[in-house]
């Protein structure tokens, strides 16, 4: 009996080795892909926005989503509730109290942040999400998608939305930075183009970061000294300037560590050149050989067959 138990503990140890090695390795930060200075982005100045929600209309219009006429969007009653982007609207504006001026609340537009190192891109089982190398837009290929919704669980900003009512060809829906428009015409995303207040600036992310810091330097009383999206989770294409911390307006306070770094270190050490699986295979193979020989020797000694009976 003792032998069996020892043997099994050995097996447990053998199998666990893989897990332990990857656990210890995950502590070490992995080298991540570099961020291109040419990637495009949008800088949102939430202190400028008046909450007209024309961007919501323009987004639906551009993406052929069902929408009410544009004049209905003036209705401020929608701000009573915090809304989230969904499969029928890739961007929404929410309203938050302004401690300095109760008359003029802060309005914050929400949409896909187009992370530099996106969780959805890393998570997708079939690579349906890609970070476009030229524009930096995170785009989705419905043709590949199997509809598992793991991207939704992975996204720290909870952005990908799913067409739950579509039985046959449901898709993941989210802002694509008006990618088709961008790549063809180099124009602006629909929401940026329509904004009457010029709340948003569209351009190279690297330049937007400079603009943002310039503004903070010029008007320190107007802004919190933080460009949201510059470092959060490895940086995002959408950047925010705000009058009060973004984490008081439903944008979480995140570390700089990109989400994929959490899992990819584990995955990649587990599969490094296929060595760990091969090592486990050969270890089990050797054990099999050793135990088989031992068993045969015992059988010979006892001169009896079938220990199982």
């Amino acid at each position: 009996m003792d032998l069996t138990r020892r043997g099994f503990l050995k097996f447990t140890a053998a199998a666990g080795t893989v897990g332990i090695t990857n656990a210890s390795k995950s502590v070490r930060a992995e080298h991540r892909k570099p961020v291109s200075p040419d990637w495009l982005g949008v800088l949102v100045d939430t202190t400028v926005c008046i909450g007209c929600r024309k961007c919501e209309w323009a987004c639906k219009d551009f993406h052929n989503l069902p929408t009410e006429p544009i004049d209905k969007y003036e209705n401020k009653a929608v701000f009573k509730k915090v809304r989230r982007p969904d499969a029928e609207g890739y961007t929404v504006v929410n309203s938050y109290d302004n401690p300095n001026n109760p008359e003029k609340p802060y309005y914050v537009k929400v949409q896909c942040m187009h992370c530099n190192d996106a969780a959805c891109v890393s998570a997708c089982i079939v690579g349906a999400f890609t970070k476009d190398e030229r524009t930096g837009a995170v785009i989705y290929d419905a043709w590949k998608c199997i509809g598992c919704r793991y991207c939704m669980a992975a996204c720290p900003f909870q952005i990908p939305a799913y067409e739950y009512q579509n039985a046959l060809t449901p898709q993941i829906r989210k802002c694509n930075l008006c990618f088709s428009n961008l790549s063809k015409y180099r124009k602006q995303p629909a929401c940026v183009a329509i904004c009457p207040m010029e709340t948003m600036i569209f351009g190279k992310r690297s330049e937007l970061i400079k603009i943002a810091h310039d503004r903070i330097r010029k008007y320190p009383e107007r802004y919190v000294d933080h460009v949201y999206g510059e470092h959060e989770l490895g940086g995002t294409s959408w950047l925010y300037l705000s009058g009060k911390p973004m984490w008081e307006m439903h944008f979480k306070h995140y570390d700089e560590k990109p989400i994929p770094a959490y899992t990819e270190t584990i995955q990649h050490s587990l599969f490094k050149n296929f060595l760990p699986p091969l090592a486990l295979f050969s270890m089990l193979g050797s054990l099999m050989w050793i135990f088989k020989r031992q068993e045969q020797r015992e059988k010979k000694q006892n001169n009896q067959e079938g220990g199982g009976k």
């Binding site: 891109v121 598992c148 060809t169």
Partner: peptide, 28 residues
């Protein structure tokens, strides 16, 4: 039952769609 586009369940078997960064791909 859970997959929205269940008829694509075979997609992870296509080398052109392999995503070695994905833990889900490894499981699949």
């Amino acid at each position: 039952f859970d997959l929205g586009r269940w008829y694509n369940i075979w997609h992870p078997a296509l080398p052109s769609m392999w995503n070695f960064n994905s833990a889900l791909f490894e499981v699949g």
